[in-house]
Amino acid sequence: MKPFVTFKHTPKLSAALIAVALTIIAYSCGTSSAAETPAGTEAPALPVVQLKAMPASSFREYTSAIEGKVNVEIRPQVDGYLDKIFVDEGAYVKQGQPLFRINDRPYQEQYSNAKANLEASKANLEKAKLEVDRLTPLVENNVVSDVQLKTAQAAYSAAKAAVAQAQSSVGNAGINVGYTLISAPVSGYIGRIPLKIGSLVGRGETQALTVISDVKEVYAYFSMSEVDFLHFKNDIAGETIAEKIKHLPPVELVLADGSVYTAKGKIETVEGQFDKTMGAISFRAAFPNEQGLLRSGSTGKVRIPQEFPSTVVVPQEATFELQDKVFVFAVGDSNKVVSKPLSIAGKTTGYYFVNNSLKDGERIVFSGLGRLRDGAVITPQPVQLDSLLKSKPL
C-alpha cells in the first residue's frame, strides 16, 4: 500500500529548529483548548429586593430668596446735612415714627421769605381793590373815563394772581421744611444705615438712607426650570395657571441650617414669562412671620409636596449613575442581570419613585453593583423591601 504523502527530498532540520517548532505547536493547542473550556466559576451571591407599587409622598425643592412683604427705601427729598438719626440699625419702627432730620435752616429761611412775599402780595391786592372801589362810582357818574377803571381792574387781577403765586411759594417752602424730618412710611425693621451724622445727603444720591422691611409676612421667590414647569402644568388640576396655583398644596420652607420653618406657606403668583438667560420662570410663595424669625435677604428652599397614589419604590442604594442617568440592575430569567435606566417621578432621602421604567414585583440587585455587567449570572439572596422601609421609612 502506498503512503498518503511522499517526499521526493527530505530536508535536513537541525535538532534545535525541530524543538522550537514542537514547542509552538504545543502552546497553540493548549491555548485553543483553554478557550473552548474555561475553568468553571460559581455565580456570585448578591442581595436582591423585589419591588412593590404603593402610595407615597415626596417633594421637590427649589432654592429661594426671602424678602419682606414691604421693602421701602428711605431717600431724602431735599438736599442738606444730616443733623440727627433717631433710630438704630435693626430697630423696629412704627409708621410715622421719626427716622432722620436734615438741617432745616435754609428751608426755614425760604419759608419765612415766602410768607413775607405773601403778605406783600396781599397788601398790593388790598391797594388794588381800593383803587377799583374808588374809581367805580366816578365812572358811573361820568366824572372820569372808564379806561381808568379798566386799568385799575387789571391791576387788581394781577395783584390777585400774585397773591395766589405767593401762597403757592409758601406751600412749597413748607413742604421742603417738612421734608427735612424723615418719618417711617410703614412699620417694619430698619436695615443698614450707611451714612452718619454730618453727611451731605440729597435727592441725587444713589444710596438710600436705609431700608424698612415689613416682615410680618415674607415672600420666598424661587424659579422652576422649563421641564418642571411643564410637569406643573400637566400634573396639577385646573384649566388656567391661576386655577392650578389654587390647587397646589401648602408648601414648606427649609432654612439655611436645614431645619424646616414652623409655619407653612402658599404659592400665590407666577411670572408671565421665562427668563431668557436662565431658562426658568419665577414663582412667589408667602409665609407668615409674626415672630420676625425670617428677614429680608435670607435664603432657603421652598419644598413642594407631591402625592403618588401608586408608584414603584426603589432604594437609592440599589442604583448607580452613568452619564447623568440613574440605573438599576434588574434580575431576569435564569438570574441574568440587565441594566435599566429609571424614569424618576420623585424622591425622598433614601428612595426613588419611578413610573413605567420598572414594574410591580420586578427584582433588582440591592448591593454589590460595582462587580456586575449586563448578562452576568448571579445567585439571588432575597431582601425584604418591608424590612428596608422599617429601618428607613419613606
Rank of each mutant, 00 (worst) to 15 (best):
E61N: 11
G90R: 06
A65R: 05
V78F: 06
L125K: 13
K129M: 13
E67P: 00
K122S: 12
N113P: 01
D104G: 07
S121E: 04
P55S: 07
A120L: 15
D79A: 13
Y107D: 03
M54V: 08
E89S: 15
I102H: 05
D104K: 14
D104C: 09
N71P: 01
R105Y: 06
P55R: 08
D88E: 14
Y62P: 03
R75L: 07
K84E: 14
S64D: 03
D79F: 04
K129F: 08
R105L: 11
T63Y: 03
L99K: 10
A53S: 14
G68V: 00
A56G: 05
A56E: 02
G68K: 00
K122V: 15
L125H: 09
E89C: 03
Q95K: 15
N103A: 10
R75V: 13
A91H: 09
Y107G: 05
V87C: 06
I102P: 08
E73V: 00
S121T: 06
S112L: 14
G96R: 08
A53Q: 11
L82F: 01
I102C: 11
A120T: 12
S58I: 02
Y81A: 03
Q97K: 10
D79K: 09
Q110L: 12
E109F: 12
E109I: 15
R75P: 00
A53T: 08
R75F: 04
V93W: 13
K69Y: 07
Y92P: 04
R75T: 12
D83S: 15
G90F: 06
P76G: 09
A65Y: 02
P76D: 10
N103T: 11
F59A: 13
N103E: 12
R101N: 10
K115Q: 11
I85L: 08
P76Q: 08
Q77W: 02
R101H: 07
S121R: 07
S112I: 08
P106E: 02
K94S: 15
E126C: 01
V70M: 09
N124E: 12
A128L: 05
G96W: 08
I66M: 00
N117D: 14
K122C: 03
I85W: 04
S121L: 06
E89K: 10
V70H: 10
P106K: 03
L82Q: 01
R105V: 13
T63V: 11
G90S: 08
E119V: 12
A123G: 07
A128Y: 02
S121G: 15
K127P: 00
A56M: 04
T63N: 12
N117P: 01
K115V: 09
D104Y: 07
P98Y: 05
Y92R: 14
E126I: 06
N117E: 13
I66D: 00
P55D: 04
E89Y: 02
Q95P: 00
G90C: 08
A116F: 08
Q110P: 03
V78G: 05
V93R: 12
A120Y: 12
K52F: 04
S58M: 02
K122M: 14
D79S: 13
R105W: 04
F86P: 01
A114S: 07
F86E: 08
E67K: 01
Y111M: 14
K69R: 13
R60K: 13
R101K: 15
K94Y: 10
S121I: 07
L99F: 07
V87N: 07
K84C: 03
L51D: 03
Q108A: 13
G80R: 00
A65T: 11
V78Y: 05
A65L: 05
